[in-house]
Amino acid sequence: MTKEFNKDGSFQRQINRFTTPFGDQPGELPIEKDRYRLLWSPACPWAHRSVIVRHILGLEEVISIGTASPMRPQIEEVDWEFSLDPDGVDPVLGIKYMSEVYKQADPTYEGRPTVPVIVDLTNKQAVNNDYFKLTNYLETVWAPYHKEQAPELYPEYLRKEIDELNDVIFHEVNNGVYKCGFARSQDAYEEAYDTLFARLDDLEKRLATRRFLFGDFITDSDIRLYATLIRFDVAYYNGFKTNRNLIREYEHLWGYLRDLYQTPGFGETTDFDAIKMHYHLSITIFQNNGDVKILPKGPDLMLFESLHNREKLSSQVDPFLR
């Protein structure tokens, strides 16, 4: 991970190694039922958004899923392990560590094995770990396998605007919290902190007059923002020093977050225990009473189930949402 820092102490996330797109063109990954397995950890925001999309679009019977522990294994290299499964191995792939599917695809791979990663079951190799585009593939070229009346999360007429907003959300919010938490200089931290909260303030204003980021319906952008917001108060606020405001202190962002949490596909794929374990017990940047690490007791989940009244901002009722 030392390679992911600039000379000024700022954090720069590693690039994705396996980026071959899914599709029906030569050289693309074929769209086939039961051919792929999605590996994730419920602690990870990048992986969580792919699992939300998979659930919403009804791809659960098409692409299987393997779940890694939120706790990093106590080994020399950074990895994810399948210690939650019987005998500590994924029941389909027979692997103990995430890195195995990366090395199977590229024996010279030296980066961090990341989630989400799609594995081709025909050869047990990692074929796509491009978290930035993976949800878009699931939303478009995987359409033949979408459930009936699946919502359009990435409508063609909005894609340019969605892509532009996704890019901003990635750099300033999704990765922005990591730029704060992993900064190795005061200047790098404060620059990332100011950028993060300037963007959250802007999103607060945007959501004051519209239910979701693009109006009355959920898009890919909402899913990407949700994955960070839902972890903010329980992990990033203290752990990553993003402590100007809790999300619960924003009127509109807080109502928006509860609205999404109560929407099918969001709350049931959110595992607060896994999130807390990963960020407060597993990530080594946290210094908590010396060698003693304490797992926070909260949050009270009833807060997320409370009334939000965001539907009043909608001009129409979307049956997908309620």
Results as ranks from 00 to 15, higher is better:
Trp46Gln: 04
Ser83Asn: 14
Asp318Pro: 01
Pro86His: 05
Arg199Glu: 15
Asn245Ser: 12
Leu93Phe: 06
Leu321Ala: 06
Ile283Tyr: 07
Ser185Arg: 10
Ser221Phe: 03
Arg49Met: 11
Pro45Cys: 09
Leu93Tyr: 03
His280Glu: 06
Ile294Ala: 13
Leu196Trp: 14
Asp187Gly: 10
Thr269Phe: 08
Ala47Glu: 05
Phe304His: 06
Val292Tyr: 10
Pro21Thr: 00
Phe217Trp: 03
Thr209Lys: 04
Ile52Gly: 09
His280Tyr: 07
Pro21Tyr: 02
Leu303Met: 12
Glu100Tyr: 02
Asn166Val: 00
Ala150Thr: 00
Leu246Ser: 04
Val292Ile: 15
Ile95Met: 03
Lys133Glu: 09
Val168Cys: 09
Leu59Ala: 08
Gln14Pro: 03
Arg54Lys: 15
His252Thr: 12
Phe5Asp: 04
Ile52Ala: 11
Leu260Pro: 02
Asp163Pro: 00
Phe170Glu: 06
Ser282Trp: 05
Phe212His: 01
Glu81Lys: 14
Ala188Phe: 07
Thr114Asp: 05
Tyr236Ser: 15
Asn238Tyr: 15
Asn6Gly: 10
Arg112Met: 05
Leu203Ile: 14
Gly27Cys: 07
Ala188Leu: 09
Leu29Gln: 00
Ser69Trp: 05
His280Asp: 04
Ser64Met: 14
Leu200Tyr: 12
His252Trp: 15
Arg159Trp: 11
Glu61Gly: 15
Lys293Ala: 13
Pro107Gln: 11
Phe132Val: 10
Lys96Cys: 06
Gln149Ile: 00
Ala235Arg: 11
Leu321Gln: 09
Ala192His: 05
Ile223Ala: 06
Val92Phe: 10
Pro151Ala: 00
Gly27Lys: 08
Met302Asn: 14
Gln186Thr: 12
Phe182Arg: 10
Arg35Cys: 03
Tyr189Cys: 09
Ile56His: 03
Gln149Val: 01
Phe214Tyr: 12
Glu156Ile: 14
Leu229Trp: 03
Val234Glu: 11
Val119Asp: 01
Pro73Tyr: 04
Tyr236Arg: 15
Glu28His: 09
Cys180Tyr: 10
Ala188Thr: 07
Glu249Met: 05
Gly94Trp: 04
Arg35Lys: 03
Met71Glu: 10
Phe320Cys: 02
Gly255Gln: 07
Gln125Glu: 00
Ser50Cys: 15
Asp318Cys: 02
Lys276Thr: 08
Phe214Met: 10
Gly58Ala: 11
Lys133Ile: 03
Glu172Tyr: 12
Ser41Gln: 08
Glu32Val: 05
Ala126Asn: 00
Arg258Met: 08
Arg244Asn: 09
Phe212Arg: 01
Thr122Pro: 03
Asp216Pro: 01
Gln125Asp: 01
Pro296His: 07
Asp220Ile: 12
Ala126Arg: 01
Phe217Val: 05
Ile218Pro: 03
Gly298Asn: 02
Ile56Ala: 05
Asp220Arg: 13
Glu311Gly: 14
Glu191Lys: 15
Arg211Leu: 04
Ile95Gly: 01
Val234Thr: 15
Gly255Ile: 03
Ile52Met: 15
Asp201Pro: 06
Leu313Arg: 00
Asn243Tyr: 11
Ala227His: 08
Pro42Thr: 11
